[in-house]
Design a protein around this nucleic acid. Structure first.
Lengths: 226, 226
DNA sequence: CAAGGAAATATTGGATACGATCCTGCGACA
DNA sequence: TGTCGCAGGATCGTATCCAATATTTCCTTG
């Protein structure tokens, strides 16, 4: 059996892997806001050259996770209450709109997909790995919005979300927030399954707005203290 | 006078110049949708290496102008009525919202900036260089929205606009559209100067929606014909 | 003559090497 | 004493070169 050496079907490029690696560090908080990312350091750490590191940083800049200045390198973008407001306001416009569009053309398969995403999210709460939970949380949102068939808006939301994720990790009581989010997800899905566009949109908006409010007020306390 | 050879203070990187070059080709229609962009061809054309070309393409991918597939290179993204709807709907959500936020914190200086942008746009209509007009059109929109102090939303809009621009170039009667747009710009600016957030938002929304309608209906005719 | 497959070619992805720019710290001069 | 200018090192931007993958061509075979 001369099977190919590796698990195969792992068609990933080095650039993509580096981008994931750095993004995880930023979202996880290992690289805080303001942290200088040295291309050579990352390259040595991962045993690759600087080229894929540079290209990964370009992608992360497009997502807003880092800021690149010519000849001065990449810096992890700062978190602030203003930025969080900016970001969540954009989500608050796009997500309720897209979910309405999605429901307008919803198939049973789409509902099944959303239900599965919800179940995966529920199952992961017990285990409580924050990285996995974040991924599944977003997967649920994506499952709701995907049927809208708006790839461009979805791409925008994807970039917004990776930054929003950084803020979500700051929550003081993540466990409490998670159980609250779980109940809200269930309510949203119920309305979604009924194809009640208005109610789903309303609940989704509230779901995002509540999270935004908590994060912003918490950030403002932090900024006032400093 | 041993003045330096170039205008100097032109601190641009080669990557940025290449990105501008390719973007202009795409927006101008020289590279139509589906066109394969060969890195080496661009590199030879501009007398640079392939590295800056690759990095430019990454940036253009983030803007949605091209699609990159691993080991298969970059292809100019296709235009379609669905994509235009996707894109303009997102603008229709963000721009009216941002202009309200801008008016809420508007300074006299901001109004003066918008007025200047409007005048520049008016002045350019006479000359009629499409590339310049497009730039000044967007500069006016930017001047209106900039005071909102929402850099992240502005960045999203910036990427949306560069694609929207491709569609705007398709208009059958650009001259007619331009004069219509000019009158609408004047009306918008009048409401803006009065700090009438509701009216400005309404007019801006209509301004974008009208352009979108014309483009989408035109595209649908084209798609039905094919 | 059409279909399948292997070698040849083209194109992209990544590594190494070099030149340009920026930052830091030391010393000279007002 | 404070400010300016100038090395020196560190870091980034780009060119050149090598490896991996995709596409094409052409031959074989049913």
């Amino acid at each position: 059996m001369p099977t190919p050496p590796k698990p195969l079907l792992q068609r990933q490029t080095v650039t993509a892997m580096v981008a994931e690696y750095i993004a995880a560090k930023i979202i996880g908080g290992d690289y805080p806001g303001g942290h200088q990312i040295r291309q050579e350091a990352i390259a040595a750490e991962l045993g690759v050259s600087r080229i894929p590191v540079r290209e990964a940083l370009l992608q992360l800049e497009a997502e807003g996770l880092v800021v690149i200045r010519t000849h001065r390198g990449a810096v992890v973008s700062d978190l602030s209450a203003d930025d969080a407001i900016d970001l969540f306001d954009a989500r608050l416009l796009l997500e309720p709109f897209l979910v309405k569009k999605a429901i307008a053309r919803l198939s049973n398969q789409d509902i099944a997909n959303a239900e599965r995403a919800l179940q995966d999210y529920e199952a992961a709460i017990a285990r409580g790995d924050p990285k996995e939970l974040s991924r599944l949380n977003w997967a649920f949102h994506t499952a709701l919005l995907e049927p809208s068939m708006r790839p461009r808006s979805m791409a925008v939301l994807q970039t917004l979300y990776s930054s929003a994720d950084r803020y979500l990790r700051l929550q003081i009581e993540p466990l409490k927030a998670q159980t609250k989010a779980l109940q809200e997800h269930r309510d949203i899905f119920e309305a979604y399954r009924r194809r009640d566009a208005v109610e789903t949109s309303r609940l989704l908006k509230k779901h995002v707005a509540d999270a935004a409010d908590e994060i912003v007020s918490q950030l403002k306390r932090g900024e006032a203290a400093s």
